[in-house]
Design a protein around this nucleic acid. Structure first.
Lengths: 122, 122
DNA sequence: TGTTTAACTATCCTTTTGTATAGTACTTAC
DNA sequence: GTAAGTACTATACAAAAGGATAGTTAAACA
């Protein structure tokens, strides 16, 4: 299986195209304005719905609840309901979610430099 | 200026929120389905429009031309017109564009592992 | 003469993403 | 009793992203 050719719709793919595919897979899970910010906020510790809402600037309740559901589906986030009164729901990163740490660190560094660059130009 | 407080709309921000901001800056430039794939294809060498179109699976001409313009605006990509007959247009990564190499490598690695994980589950 | 290549632009349409606003059910604090 | 907090869902809508298809200009190839 080692030298099997990667194909899409019957076409053999070049080096370049092949190297794009895994990045596309990553982008699919992390796509959109909110997923990484939510994950970052959970890297600082387990949180409840409204805590996340406060810490991720600009997010609405609707987006937050939708994105949390997506992240749960992809097993990056775990949802735990405590049946205390009133009900408390806690969100936490799974181990798999924590594996995004490197990705986030690299993006943060690039983003910082990018922001600096923009400031200088303006 | 070292200990200046970071604020948004007059609010002082917590640790967590502050650490989200640079990532958001990065996401803004790289957002969408196509920008990173295009950049990757240019990391393999300078290319012309239709070459990129062939190497990035699934992209339409419209998306490609729009995204190239965006990337040019952000100084990640350079557009060079050779006034030969017929006109040839070449796209290349700027030095700044090459600074995304690390980001892409990390995403590619995470994406590969993610794909494997999905395969096993299914 | 018709087809292909190159580098696009234009139009129309659907889907996704995001915003605004309101409402629910229950509880504690003032 | 009224307000505020908790964890949402519901509705309606606007904007952005993406897709499908076709058209342009001009040369080269068969």
């Amino acid at each position: 299986m080692k030298n099997a050719e990667v194909t899409i719709e019957g076409h053999t793919l070049g080096e370049c195209t092949k190297s794009i595919l895994p990045v596309r897979d990553a982008l699919e899970v992390l796509s959109g304005k909110w997923k990484l910010p939510i994950i970052i906020s959970l890297m600082f510790g387990n949180k409840r719905f409204s805590q996340i809402a406060r810490e991720v600037p600009g997010i609405t309740d609707k987006m937050l609840s939708k994105e949390l559901r997506d992240l749960e589906c992809n097993e990056l986030v775990k949802r735990t309901v405590f049946d205390s009164i009133p009900v408390v729901v806690e969100y936490s990163l799974t181990e798999y979610g924590h594996s995004l740490k490197v990705v986030i660190e690299v993006l943060r560094e690039w983003g910082s430099k990018h922001r600096e660059r923009m400031m200088v130009e303006a």
